[in-house]
């Protein structure tokens, strides 16, 4: 028997491996760089404005005299959008998911799923325009006090934007419930409705919850539609018919202006972005944590 030949160095393998590693590394580096810059500028900002004042102040007027740097109005504006969007997207999303996974025929599913995906693929600026030219006039017919720019219109359109994601993730969660559980229910004399509401939805609940969390996280970060439709008035209010400003919309506003780099106003961008980053990060972590837990349910 011939001896095994000596180990060869396969250069093409080596080059490809390094190339793949580099590609993977780019995203890690980018994330690290973003976090670093955010942190650096935010810390500089806090040298001038105390953290407590920033987090608890009720007036946000960095572009006007007298200047105030309390982020609460922006947070309130964001919350209005998020809650409004949740009210629109969560019930409709869950109901669509129930229809898709439990009731729809193969044919109906094959039509509705792609339509949902198209809805998810529409550029957000189109949604913003849709809010401004269609939803707002509609709202003003029903509620004449509605301002031209208002939180409700933006919230509704953000709700429509995140709806496909909610529906699709909830559909996944419901379809992950094994058919054997449904059959167990049916064999005990249950109707489709009882099987759906008392077995499938409870069993998929953590997946549904994860979908909610990710939807909220997306609504917080949504920028274009709220910039167009909700206005640019930092406003500590709970009235959705008023003009407000979200954290993201503020960042757009200042970025588009002629704010000199290095100024305090410039640094507010990073402070606001840090708050945004931390909130969406926490929500995403919560969402994926819940998702992972729910995978273990049936084992």
């Amino acid at each position: 028997m011939a001896e095994l030949s000596a180990k060869k160095t396969r250069w093409n393998e080596w080059v490809l491996e390094k190339l793949f590693f580099f590609c993977a590394f780019v995203s890690v580096i980018t994330t690290a760089a973003v976090i670093f810059i955010l942190l650096e500028e935010t810390l500089t900002f806090f040298e001038t404005v105390p953290v407590l004042e920033f987090l608890t102040g009720t007036r946000w007027t960095p572009l006007l005299e007298p200047k105030h740097y309390g982020i609460l109005p922006l947070v309130a504006g964001t919350m209005l959008i998020v809650m409004g969007a949740a009210i629109v997207a969560l019930p409709i999303g869950v109901a669509s998911a129930i229809f898709l996974s439990e009731y729809a025929s193969h044919r109906a599913r094959s039509i509705i799923k792609p339509i949902l995906e198209i809805l998810a693929g529409i550029p957000t600026v189109v949604y913003g325009y849709f809010a401004l030219t269609f939803i707002t006039p509609g709202l003003r017919v029903i509620l004449p006090d509605t301002q031209i720019f208002n939180a409700a219109s933006a919230a509704i359109v953000v709700g429509i934007m995140v709806l496909p994601m909610v529906a699709s993730l909830c559909d996944d969660a419901l379809r992950a419930v094994p058919a054997s559980l449904r059959h167990g229910g049916y064999s005990l004399g249950a109707t489709s409705f009882e099987v759906t509401t008392r077995i499938v939805v409870p069993a998929g609940l953590s997946g549904i919850f994860a979908a909610f969390v990710l939807a909220v996280s997306r609504a917080i970060g949504e920028t274009m539609a709220v910039t167009l439709a909700a206005g640019a008035t930092p406003n500590l209010t709970a009235n959705p018919l008023e003009s407000i400003q979200t954290m993201t919309a503020y960042i757009v506003q200042v970025s588009l202006g002629d704010t000199p780099s290095g100024s305090l106003t410039y640094q507010t961008l990073f402070a606001v972005a840090s708050v945004l980053f931390v909130s969406t990060l926490m929500l995403n972590i919560l969402g994926t944590w819940v998702m992972r837990r729910f995978r273990e349910v049936y084992e």
């Binding site: 054997s180 559980l181 059959h183 167990g184 229910g185 064999s187 069993a203 349910v297």
Partner: peptide, 10 residues
């Protein structure tokens, strides 16, 4: 009915 694979509800 009792199925091939035990299917208790969670």
């Amino acid at each position: 009915m009792v199925f091939q694979k035990a299917n208790p509800f969670p």
